[in-house]
Structure formats: C-alpha cells, structure tokens
Design a protein around this nucleic acid. Structure first.
Length: 245
RNA sequence: CCCCGAAAAAG
C-alpha cells in the first residue's frame, strides 16, 4: 500500500486527480486496503484542484466507513477550507478534531492563521497565535512568516517588522520566505530603502534570495522609477545563478 | 526513532 499511496500522491502532484481516484479503485480491487494516508493524499489533491466539495464528501465517507481521522487528515481538509475562504467551516472542523482527541500542531495552526490573514482577519490570526503559544505549541518560522505576511497585507508593516525583530532577538532565524514577505511589503508601499536594507542583510546572513525575492525587489525599484537599478538587479540575479521566470 | 499523507512569500 506504500506503493499505491506514493503513486496516488504523484498523480495528485501532477494534477491528475481523476487518475488518482481511478488508482484508488484499482488498489481496492487488488485487495489492498487504503489507509488514512491514502485518503489524506486524495483529499489534499482534491483541495489543491479546487474540488473542495469532493474532498469534504470523501472525508465524510471515509469516516462513515470506520476510519478515524487523524491530525494530518483533519489538517489537509482544514487547510483546503481555509484557502477557499470558508473559515467558519474550518473552525467547526477544528473543534470537531479536538473533540476527537486529535492534537493541533504547527501545520494546523499555520493553516488557520494563514487563512485568517488572507481573508483580511489579521486580528483573529493574532488570537490564534496566542492560543498556540498558551497551549504549549511554540510557533515556528512558518507561523511567524504567516503572521508577518498578514500584517503586511493589513498595511501594518511596522508591526510586521517588529515581529521580525523579535524573532531574531529570540534566537530564531528568518528564512528566505520571511525576508521575501517583508521585502515585498516594503516595496509595495514604496519604502525601497527598507527593502534594500533587508535584501543586503539577508545576503550577509547567508540567506540566498530566490526568484520571488528578486521579482518583488525589481518591481519595487520600477515602482519608484529606478529603472536602471532594476536592470542592474536583474543582471546580478542572473549572475547569482537565479533564473528569471 | 522506525519507508508513503497536511502549512508560508512575488508575478
């Protein structure tokens, strides 16, 4: 069944969810019993293909067939709900999950926090961050990056930057995503000086900018009319071995 | 601890 699960996962990642569903049938016909991993993989594939209703149906059917959803299975569906902006249902499922003895972990909190951030409810995201900390699940860099991104989107750059400083002070290391979020945020409000400062800081710290970082910064330079500098940055991007897309 | 499943950034 590990083999079937891996194949199903591969098909989902190749956007061939229907083929993955077919393979599930084949798997059963071959007398191989699907497990939580199999169903979680399919639900995730359905969610990524924006086929949320089918993912929900699969979840219910799986549960009716006697499978006990675990934290990973709940997380996959909760993440899908969050990404589709269905926060109410996501929270219902989160309660259901806790009621069934599944412990929320960083993945789950990250999905909830990111969902609230992207649906414009940064304050709710900050509340969940508190819950997370109080329940003894220390946020990692992904969760803090979610929060910083939410603050940037809410035009609360200063607070976002403050979280960034706090992360460093607490001995954690911002990664290329964290830096890219802040650089993009500062570029979008025209604070190119701050963006450039972070860009040089990340390189000093050995954190290599990627195509996302460069794209934001080039966009930011163009926005403030620094076309020549944008072009130079494109050149240094290429010479740094980063392929423009 | 113990092979397969869930989370973040630009366009």
């Amino acid at each position: 069944s590990f083999i079937y699960n891996s194949l199903i996962n591969g098909l989902c990642e190749a956007d061939k969810v229907d083929d993955a569903i077919e393979l599930l049938k084949t798997m059963k016909e071959a007398g191989c019993r699907p497990c939580n991993v199999t169903y979680t993989t399919l639900m995730n594939g359905l969610c990524k293909a924006k086929r949320l209703e089918e993912a929900k149906t699969l979840f219910e059917r799986t549960r009716q067939n006697g499978y006990k959803p675990d934290t990973v299975m709940y997380s996959a569906l909760i993440d899908g709900l969050c990404k589709a902006g269905q926060q109410t249902q996501a929270l219902e499922l989160y309660e259901d999950m806790k009621g069934n003895g599944c412990k929320p972990n960083r993945f789950l909190y990250s999905s909830l926090i990111d969902g609230f951030c992207k649906s414009g409810n940064i304050d709710r995201a900050l509340e969940i961050l508190e819950v997370m900390i109080e329940s003894g699940c220390p946020p990692n860099i992904v969760v803090y990056s979610n929060i910083i991104d939410g603050l940037c989107r809410a035009n609360r750059m200063e607070e976002g930057y403050q979280y960034f400083l706090d992360i460093i002070q607490s001995g954690s290391h911002p990664n290329v995503v964290t830096y890219s979020i802040l650089i993009d945020g500062f570029c979008k409000i025209g604070k190119i000086d701050m963006a450039l400062k972070l860009f040089s800081e990340m390189k000093t710290k050995g954190c290599a900018p990627n195509v996302v970082t460069y794209t934001s910064l080039i966009w930011g330079l163009l926005k403030v009319g620094k076309a020549a500098e944008a072009r130079n940055l494109l050149k240094s991007m290429i010479s740094a071995g980063c392929e423009p897309n």
